[in-house]
Amino acid sequence: MSRKKVSGLAPWEEPGSVAGRIGKGGVLALIVLAVLLPLYTIVLTSLSPAETVNRVGGLVLVPDGITFDAYRQIFSDSVVSRAVLVSTGVTLVGTAISLGVSVLGAYALSRPGTLFHRPMLFCVLLMFVFFPGLIPTYLMVTSLGLKDSYWSLILPSAVSAFNVVVLRAFFMNIPHELLDSARIDGAGEFRILWRIVLPLSKAVTAVIGLFYAVGYWNAWFNAMLYIDDTRKWPLALVLRSYVVDSNPLPTATVGVNGFGHVAPPTLAIKMAIVSIAVLPALLIYPFVQRHFTKGVIIGAIKG
């Protein structure tokens, strides 16, 4: 904790004791390390050459050579590359559907006093207090013929009541004089939503989109329930099977690959799968993160 920060204190605020400040800095450093160290060593191991991984006998902490063999191996293998495609497709299509349906629904619910406003709102709010149960939901999805269909990964979880309510709270805070004047100028509801409401709610829409996208990318349970066909597995199921349960990858056999190199060790391959699963969150996160505290959450809490 440097001098500079002490100067940021209010004039009446006494600087903490040196020991206290060192202690605080130490705790914070440990917390940051607890999040970042696992990610660091996992990514590093996935990039380390076979000799390094075998010499260490586990996860690599000190970099000693970089190779993309593990990734090359994974993407030459149809199981993982197919799963990445499935997960990407489900995430893109699912997020688009969820965001569209939720924005439309939230806007429709943002004007008390309109026709059927209360019953429709009730319909959504009820989702907070009661979960219909796993078995009836499962029977519904299967009776719609969605078993082993990608739609089973999207439709049952397409509407999140929480996200709809957050969007609605934002839409309701838009000054209605703005909407009224547009209406007087002859704009229809769709045009108002598209031209006025959405441009004013970019931050919240981005964050809600992230929530949905993360949900789809991470979804494991629905896939476990509804997808039996291993060729349709999303990444989460592959991750579970090959990394958590340590089932052998079908083609990632030990031996020599086409280039005459030793095939990458199983651990590096596993860590490469984990890295791929983490990657999208890491990529999008910095762009959306700054909206979290200022945008969505505080706004939602203050109503």
């Binding site: 943002s110 004007r111 008390p112 006093g113 309109t114 709010l125 907070f128 929480f162 309510v165 957050v166 609605r168 709270a169 309701m172 805070n173 838009i174 209605h176 909407l179 009224d180 209406r183 939602a300 809490i301 203050k302 109503g303």
Partner: peptide, 15 residues
């Protein structure tokens, strides 16, 4: 969130 959204409800639009 749900609990606290309600007090914020105000008649907006041609309500």
């Amino acid at each position: 969130v749900t609990r606290q959204v309600r007090p914020g409800e105000s008649p907006a639009g041609p309500a």
